[in-house]
Design a binder for these strands. Structure first.
Lengths: 254, 254
DNA sequence: CGGCTTTTTGAACCCCATCAATATCCGTGG
DNA sequence: CCACGGATATTGATGGGGTTCAAAAAGCCG
C-alpha cells in the first residue's frame, strides 16, 4: 500500500506508449488508420494511471468529458435504481470503449468499476468529435464500436428475456470465449476476472442459482470449472445451449 | 388493399415537408439547428411512403444504408435467435431514431415492424456522417440520440434483471407516459399501439402473466385499463412500483 | 352472425429465489 | 508454519412468482 504511489508515478512514464505500438489497435479506435492518422489520434489520447481493483474509473452522475479505451485489465459497468438495487450492464475487456452510455445527457449514467488492476486511455470527447471529421476511418470505427455496444446490449436483452438460467450462462461463457480469442487468449481455457456475484447479477440470476448452473454444466461435461478458472470441454454443446451458431455468439454470415 | 398504391403515390407528394416545419424537430435530429442548417439537413432527408401495420421497415441482415426517424405511427424492433425465439428490443415513437444497432457491422441486426400505419424519414448514413462534420449541433444531437438508445437498453436490462413482473409493467407504462407527454399527448390517458403479446415479450413475461399484472394494477386502483386503452389513476403509486423518482423514469437531477 | 385474433381467467407445475449451512480460498498475524 | 477471520463459492431444503396448459370472454371484421 505505502509503496503504491511511487509505483504509479513510475508507471505514468512507462505508459507513454502510442496507439501504433498498442497490441489492441486492431480492436480499438485505431483500427483502419494509417500511421500518419495514428499520430494525430495519439495526440488526443491521455494514458491514465492504473485503476486498482474495486476502484471506480468514473461514477454515475459525473459529467462526461471523455470516453475510455481499456488497455489492460477489465471493468464492469453498473446502473442503480433509487431503491438501491443495482444491475451490471456490461463487462469490458482490453480494446473496448467504456462510457458511451453517457453520450445521451453528457453525463455518465453508470459507474465503471475495475475488476482487477487496470489501465485505460482517455479520449477527450471534443477532440474525438473533431478528429472524426478529419479522419473518416476513425469516424467509422467509432460508430462501429458504438454499434457493438448496442448489439451487445440487445444480446443480453435476448438472454434475460428468453433464456433459462443454464442457457444464459452458456451465452455468457461463449461471448467471453470469443472476445478473449480476439485478444489472443485461449478461447477454451481462461480466467474469470469477476466473482460469481457479478456474473449472477449480470445474468439476472441469484448467486446460488448461477453456482448450480456451473455445477450442472460440469456434470454434463460441457465445462470444467474451479472457482474463477474455466475450461470449455464441449464447445458444440455450449453453442447449442446458448442457441448460437457453432463457435460464435453474434457473428453472422452475410 | 388495391387502392393502396394510389394513396401512396399521393402521400409521397404530400409528405414533402421540411424538418423546420416538423412538429418533432425539438426531439429529433434537427434539435438545436438554425434555419440555415435545417435546410442543409433537409437536403439529405428522404421522406418515405407509409409503412403499413405489420410491415417491416427493414429486416435483420440487410445492409445499413440509412437510419430512420419516425414521423408518425410507431415501430417495434425484434432480434431473433437461431432457435427461432424472438425478443423485442424496443418500441419507437415519432421523433426517435431507429436502426442504430446496425452501426456495428453496417448491417441491420434487428427487424423493424410497424405497429400501425407509420411514416418515416430516411437519413443516408454517409450524408449524415458528412453533415455531422460541418454541423456541430447535428453531431451533438446525433450522439445524444445514440446515448439515449444505449440508456434505454440499460433501463430494460435493469427491469429484466432486477424487477418483478408488476414492477416491469409499471416501468414500461411510466416510460411510455413520459415519452408521450414529450410529444404533446396526455401522459395519463393513452392508447397502446402494441398488443399484449408484444409488451409481454418486451418485458420478458408470458402474455398470461402480463394480463394478470394489468388486472392486478387495476384492482389496486393504480391504472384503469380496457384492452389497449390506459388511464393512469395513481401516478405516485406507479412511480413507487417502478422504483423511479416521481413523474420520471430516467431523468436525474444534476 | 360466424370466424378470427386478442385478452382474460383458472389450475397445476416448475424454475428459480430465498433461507440456511458448509466448504474453500486468501490474506494477515500469531 | 499454522491459526484465524472474512470473502467467495458450493450445496441443500423450501416456497413463491411465473410459465404452461386449458378454456372462456370480448373485440374485430367479413
Amino acid at each position: 500500500m505505502p509503496t503504491q504511489t511511487k509505483i504509479k508515478a513510475f508507471d505514468l512514464r512507462e505508459l507513454k506508449v502510442s496507439c501504433g505500438s498498442c497490441s489492441l489497435s486492431h480492436l480499438c479506435l485505431p483500427h483502419g488508420l494509417n500511421s500518419k492518422e495514428l499520430e494525430t489520434l495519439d495526440e488526443s489520447i491521455q494514458h491514465k494511471p492504473s485503476v486498482e481493483k474495486g476502484q471506480a474509473l468514473f461514477h454515475a452522475g459525473e459529467s462526461l468529458k471523455s470516453v475510455h479505451a481499456i488497455r489492460s485489465g477489465s471493468f464492469k459497468t453498473v446502473v442503480l435504481t433509487n431503491s438501491g438495487s443495482e444491475q451490471i450492464t456490461g463487462f469490458y475487456l482490453p480494446g473496448e470503449l467504456i462510457g458511451l452510455d453517457g453520450l445521451g445527457e453528457s453525463k455518465h449514467r453508470c459507474t465503471a468499476v475495475a475488476l482487477e488492476s487496470s489501465t485505460t486511455c482517455a479520449l477527450d470527447l471534443d477532440d474525438l468529435e473533431k478528429l472524426c471529421c478529419s479522419l473518416g476511418g476513425l469516424r467509422r470505427q467509432f460508430l462501429h464500436l458504438i454499434g457493438h455496444e448496442i448489439n451487445h446490449d440487445h444480446e443480453i436483452l435476448l438472454a434475460l428475456g428468453q433464456m433459462k438460467g443454464e442457457e444464459r450462462l452458456a451465452a455468457f461463457l461463449l461471448s467471453l470465449s470469443r472476445r478473449l480469442e480476439m485478444r489472443g487468449f485461449s478461447p477454451i481455457d481462461f480466467h474469470l476476472s469477476m466473482p460469481r456475484h457479478d456474473i449472477a447479477n449480470y445474468l439476472g440470476l441469484a448467486v446460488e442459482t448461477l453456482s448450480r448452473m456451473f455445477s450442472r454444466m460440469q456434470e454434463e461435461q460441457i465445462i470444467h470449472t474451479n472457482r474463477r478458472h474455466v475450461r470449455i470441454l464441449n464447445m458444440a454443446a455450449l453453442c447449442t445451449l446458448a442457441q448460437a451458431e457453432p463457435r460464435s455468439l453474434d457473428t453472422r454470415q452475410g
